[in-house]
Design a protein around this nucleic acid. Structure first.
Lengths: 340, 340
DNA sequence: GAAAATCAGGCAATCGATTGCTTAAATTTG
DNA sequence: CAAATTTAAGCAATCGATTGCCTGATTTTC
């Protein structure tokens, strides 16, 4: 048993040929005689030779690695995105370097720096909710490392991104509520620093308008996505003179926290108040009182799309025909209504 | 803006010195004059020079990468393990290559092969529930890639592993049930192919014995961990002449599937039947009727411990003093009782 | 039978950084 | 002032594999 994996050099020495001939023999190059080819291939098999990908990629100035940075793996949404990324990446011989920011900007920066120094070929990023400055992302541009952002994207010009289309979903959601005779519709939004929150707010307001419903500023509250903050938001909503009969929440986790709070206050879910939400997380399937409807955002497909765009960018760069345009893809979402 | 990250060579050329001098200047080597050092360091800063980790590690015949293979990221348990691994790994300048087997042996093999070809320095693996042959793990041994298994470990001699201690937990669990006057205690176990299942079975039987309770073979059923299979197991238990009053399940996900089935059959959770389980998954916090008790297995700490053992192995190999012993660490678990 | 063509394989550079060894120049010492 | 020492830096090999360009030996062609 050799101490290390076999190398071309070893094969060459044992057969008394040059390394280049050994390499060519394994690649079935025309300038190597049949006898030699056979001998090399045979010995390679015997020694269980596997070319060192790193050496090959190093010479090609590539690494075959894609860096993935996201807030939390423990959210099903992101876990599903990773699965989508993984399936495409491995099939194209790329591996994934993974890092969780845990919604901490400093951690996000450290991970990004580490991955940069490891010379990942490209990156897929969903930013931390607390990230305020974007200079670390800018630095990737000057390092010429292509990045595709997904789901939580920074507000920067000239980026590639994959997000799911919320406007139509929000409209459908509010349509659904109105059909059920709800007129007093609140929203627990996420932090205003997230573009996703601003988009939800805009969608909420314009959907209300389209349905000729006069909203009230009191009905639009926000949470920093922690359970405490969501509970506080619920407290405010429930203490209104006229509390809402329907609540749209930033995502299912917020909905679950809100529902938990409501139950503690003896509010009957889907009777006194109904909840609708975003993400359609599988965890909801285990709940007694999940949000009545949730907007499926197809995370697996988002992941697939993100890596596909990235690989395409990498490919065009390699070909020397860099694509000057920016890809900002909006994926369709779909309102999933749970049967009571 | 240079097309690529700056290299030592570029710095050397611009200053008309040799690459080796530039390297030494940046490392503050004694044989480089102060003037030269200053000039090199200044220029390095200007060009935003960052040493190419891959080149350095390539020369050192290392990659600074740890391969992590586990069944599903979407299970909180594994997501938490990854967090533990990640925190230690990044602090020691290692990055993580991630792959999900999705409980598919072929996929597990493919990922393992890819990681091997990328020459990860070591691996952390929790095996797929469907993995029957272990030769792919053996092959790591001959490649001299150290592996530490965690949670779901293969039954092989001479491996390193981190698992949580189930015996005492099971005893405590059954003690808890008995204190509550339960004598008819069933178990929905996992597939027999998993050592974890066998361990639970043994623990279950011996704990019953210790408490002088005569079990019945009918009370010990198993599920392949899918919802359907768990429902089938529940069906069998509920159709017994004397159905159990308490059910221990393989893990919380099985418990949730079982509880869902029971509720459909109008069984009152924690009245007609109580559930206890393993893993103490956070998802249970959102349930109306979670398992009444669950054995916390401290996944984050399991991850930490696993990578610590691995890094220690790597270190001792590097030092030329390989540790011939096998580390098989049992972490304490803790029964968490949920207040009704 | 000699020139041309084909065949089989080797040399050396390359990717980026590190490091043992050597060397030229400057300085110190006797 | 010559020898010894110190200072400052360069050369070249190395990690593993690929690839353009040679070169020597056959074989073919006229």
């Amino acid at each position: 048993m050799e101490p290390r994996p076999a190398t071309l050099k070893e094969i060459a020495q044992k057969l008394n040929i040059s390394v280049s001939s050994a390499s060519r023999a394994l690649h079935d190059h025309a300038s190597i005689g049949l006898r030699t080819k056979m001998r090399v291939q045979q010995l390679a098999k015997e020694l269980n030779y596997q070319p060192n990908q790193n050496a090959i990629l190093f010479k090609k100035r590539k690494t075959g690695m894609i860096g993935v940075i996201l807030p939390f793996l423990s959210q099903d949404f992101f876990a599903a995105v990773v699965s989508g990324i993984e399936d495409i990446a491995y099939s194209r011989n790329y591996t994934l370097l993974l890092g969780q920011s845990r919604d901490d900007e400093q951690r996000e920066r450290r991970i990004l720096e580490t991955m940069k120094n490891h010379r990942v070929d490209g990156m897929l990023i969903s930013i931390s909710k607390n990230t305020s400055a974007y200079d670390h992302f800018e630095s990737l541009k000057s390092s010429h490392i292509p990045v595709v952002f997904f789901d939580r994207i920074p507000e920067l010009p000239g980026i590639h991104s994959i997000t799911s289309e919320l406007g139509p979903g929000m409209l459908e959601m509010i349509g659904f509520l109105i059909k059920r005779k709800h007129r007093h519709i609140a929203m627990i939004n996420g932090p205003e620093s997230l573009p996703a929150s601003r988009e939800r707010r805009t969608g909420y307001l314009s959907a209300l308008k389209k349905h000729r419903i006069k909203g009230s500023p009191d009905l639009l509250v926000s949470s920093d996505l922690s359970a405490e903050s969501t509970h506080e938001a619920m407290r405010r909503l429930l203490s209104l003179k006229r509390p809402p009969t329907a609540i749209i929440s930033f995502n299912d986790y917020v909905a679950l926290d809100a529902i938990r709070y409501a139950k503690k206050k003896k509010i009957r879910i889907n009777k006194d108040i109904i909840f609708v939400s975003f993400a359609n997380e599988p965890v909801c399937n285990y709940m007694d009182d999940p949000p009545l409807a949730s907007l499926e955002q197809f995370p697996y497909q988002q992941g697939e799309k993100a890596i596909e765009v990235l690989l395409q960018l990498l490919h065009s760069i390699e070909e020397g025909t860099p694509d000057p345009s920016f890809h900002n893809i909006l994926l369709k979402s779909q309102l999933i209504i749970r049967e009571e």
